[in-house]
């Protein structure tokens, strides 16, 4: 059974590229364009992994991450945070809030795919 991946980002072009990448790897992909939608879809679809952008309208990636991780039902959801702000404090903040991994934009597509693969293989 194909793993489900949710892509949460407000930049259409990035969504397109991520979607293309993930689909090519054989994952089942759904998309959310803002924080609220991301939470909604996570609850509804319980994806195996979320590619979560930090700077999103309505709800930031940090808030989404916090909500997900504080919900016991969603314990199985892995979160890979993507941010264009590469500061150390942001990385630390994301990890402290329970993100499983963190990558800064622009990322290497190979590295991203590797990371996603390993994260999903941990189980």
């Amino acid at each position: 059974m194909a793993k489900k991946i949710l892509i949460a980002d407000d930049e259409q072009n990035i969504v397109i590229s991520l979607e293309f990448l993930m689909k090519r790897e054989g994952y089942e992909v759904s998309v959310a364009n803002d924080g609220d939608e991301a939470v909604r879809r996570i609850r509804a679809e319980k994806p195996d992994l979320v590619l979560l952008d930090v700077m999103m309208p309505k709800k930031s990636g940090f808030e989404v991450c916090q909500e997900v991780k504080s919900n016991p039902e969603l314990q199985s959801v892995r979160i890979l945070m993507l941010t264009a702000k590469g500061r150390d404090t942001e990385v630390a903040k994301g990890l402290a809030l329970g993100a499983d991994a963190y990558m800064t934009k622009p990322f290497s597509t190979k590295e991203l795919v590797e990371r996603v693969r390993s994260m999903l293989a941990e189980r």
Binding site: E11, N13, I14, A84, K105, P106, T109
Partner: peptide
């Protein structure tokens, strides 16, 4: 600076991702 960085990285992300994809595949 942080905003500029963000604004610069966002298009760069797309450019890099698509370029890599085109190159790899």
């Amino acid at each position: 600076m942080s905003s500029v960085t963000h604004e610069l990285r966002t298009p760069l992300t797309s450019i890099r991702a698509f370029s890599e994809m085109l190159l790899d595949d």
